[in-house]
Design a protein around this nucleic acid. Structure first.
Lengths: 208, 208
DNA sequence: ACCTGAACACCGTTCAAGT
DNA sequence: ACCTGAACACCGTTCAAGT
């Protein structure tokens, strides 16, 4: 995990890991059956870093704070979301986490039926990540980004308009772009609002 | 794309592609600078298969039907979502698509500020996919799944409860599990409902 | 119980050379 | 303008062998 945290997941080959441990590549295979098993173990360690659920709080507080904790964990291990997506079978540790999340919804007054669909709708957000489509992390100096906006204006006027207000709101701080934490909580709260309203009105997918 | 559709994205190596085209690997490099550029081109082709936006409809109809069209396209090319996530720069084709989606929101009465956050909140759902965490596609015969449920009951009681109602609702049809299309539309509509309510009340992230 | 060395079947990509 | 062949620097993983 230290190697992946520092050098990225692409740098984590069995050979390079062995090198970092001052050992020959094949020595790793006495501790782990193959690379997939290594990645499985790393994911379990990541999940176990998520704070336990707050007891005695309402469902919304419990879910929200747990998800935000998961998000902090994933920020420490940026490779984890990509690895998670490639895992084909949930480990007991992941199942434990999901089981406790489901438990919070059910104890919070969600029907089992609604809880099922809620788990689908939350998807990877339950583990604190969401797939952003654009990488807006590239920080640019004001001149550079003005040039980019000007170039977009003709062909992609709507994108240019959005980008302009983002920069305007962020002020003149160099490199300031979108506020990841704000966007994550915005989407999370939008979902939680929707869930609460479905719960309150006794929503059901059943025909009967 | 035919090779990836048939054999999966892992089977798409430059060497195997060359083989399928009855050509030597290096011949590909006269048409494409490297593998990333090949993948970029494949993504552009995928995006261009998405239906154009319906003109004259309300924002919600336009967005909803376009996203559902994108979902159908991604179902024809199951590798596309994973490849999309690894693209670091949006191509003009992708920007075009995003530009037109933003345009629909703005014409539909969303402020630029709200539209910005909406684009983040929708994330990859704008392109018709969402990251499901569990692969429930494995179909099992009734006996098998009963055994799985019984095994879960002790350690993961909440998961077992959910799985039981899913199977119960699906009836005795062998292999019937979760209804992907239903789950996708459930989450999509939950989001669209939330967006409409923010739009209607003139939500703004600005302090001023 | 743990580590080693050599080998196999793969990758993406370079370079120089062919037609 | 397009294709080829040999090579380089990587992969994950096997097998048989060492201590």
């Amino acid at each position: 995990m230290a190697l992946a945290d520092e050098s990225g997941i692409d740098a984590l080959s069995m050979r390079r890991l062995a090198d970092a441990l001052d050992v020959v590549p094949m020595a790793l295979y006495k501790h782990v059956a193959n690379k997939d098993q290594l990645l499985d173990g790393m994911i379990d360690t990541v999940i176990s870093e998520i704070d336990p659920a707050i007891a005695g709080a309402g469902w919304r507080t419990a879910i929200r704070s747990r998800i935000l904790s998961a998000r902090q964990v994933l920020k420490r291990h940026p490779w984890a979301s990509r690895v998670l997506e490639t895992r084909s079978n949930a480990s007991p540790v992941v199942l434990d986490y999901m089981n406790s999340m489901i438990g919070i919804f059910i104890e919070g007054g969600f029907s089992i039926d609604l809880t099922h669909h809620v788990m689908h709708a939350m998807g990877s957000r339950l583990l604190g990540f969401s797939q952003e489509l654009f990488d807006d992390s590239a920080s640019m100096d004001p001149e550079m980004r003005d040039a980019v906006v000007r170039q977009m204006e003709g062909r992609f006027p709507h994108i240019a308009a959005v980008v302009k207000t983002v920069y305007h709101d962020a002020g003149s701080v160099v490199g300031a772009g979108c506020d990841d934490q704000f966007e994550f909580e915005f989407a999370l709260d939008l979902l939680l609002d929707g869930l609460e309203s479905l719960r309150a009105k006794g929503w059901s997918s059943r025909r009967g």
